[in-house]
């Protein structure tokens, strides 16, 4: 898992795994989208880019979780 080579790939796999664990219907496509965007350079991604990628992926995951839960809450309350 260490070394610059493959670090981006590890991050992508981690984000996809997390997305599966948090699956509310939206996280899997979100995780796959992040994976698709970075797959091109995944094996050569630097440590800095891997950190930025991880933070971006987790931030998107949180925002999409909020959006999905907010929609469910609004639907549930009949608003």
């Amino acid at each position: 898992m260490s070394g610059a080579r493959g670090k981006g790939g590890s991050v992508v796999r981690f984000l996809r795994f997390l997305a599966h664990l948090m699956a509310d219907g939206w996280t899997v496509p979100a995780g796959l989208a992040v994976a698709a965007v970075v797959t091109l350079g995944a094996d050569r991604v630097s440590s800095t880019a891997a950190q930025a990628l991880m933070l971006a992926g987790l931030s998107i995951t949180l925002l999409l979780a909020v959006r999905s839960s907010a929609r469910q809450a609004v639907r549930g309350s009949g608003r």
């Binding site: 981690f14 795994f17 997390l18 664990l21 948090m22 987790l58 995951t61 949180l62 979780a65 909020v66 839960s69 907010a70 809450a73 609004v74 309350s77």
Partner: peptide
């Protein structure tokens, strides 16, 4: 580290999502 980080992220992001919805007045 990977295992514990994942567990903390799962719990943390869920708590955060729930708290955000409450602050926003949706729950």
């Amino acid at each position: 580290n990977l295992l514990l980080g994942t567990v903390l992220l799962l719990v943390g992001l869920r708590w955060l999502t729930k708290a955000i919805l409450r602050v926003a007045g949706l729950v």
